[in-house]
Amino acid sequence: MTADVEVILMKQVASYLAMPIFLVDLAGTLIFYNEPAEALLGRRFDETGEMPLEEWGTVFVPVDAEGAVLAPHQLPLAVALAERRPAHGRFSITAGDGRRHDLAVTAFPLIGQNARELGAVALFWEDDS
């Protein structure tokens, strides 16, 4: 089924930007991540394909500053989707190549024409603070 045009355009913007970006649909399924995100995660989107929230939310083992594993629903992207608001957070992940990355994340809901809820987007930065 063809995605809504706002989602298509968001994917196209993401594919041109240098910041790592995740795009999820209304169900929380990760439907796209761009090349900078592939570099961060150590896995290509063509290899992983789409992943449900329970999978992408755990496969990179996100942990907080104390080392406690974060549940998928605690991640900013899931918060932005569920609560329809921007969400920010810091956590660490273990990439596919075994490297640890400290990240800052900004997530926001994607709301289209006629106030249609379409999914959510997350932007990641390596956190040097």
Binding site: M1, T2, I8
Partner: peptide, 9 residues
């Protein structure tokens, strides 16, 4: 098709 505007239409 999923990523082509207007395809389903």
């Amino acid at each position: 098709p999923r990523w082509t505007s207007g395809f389903d239409l």
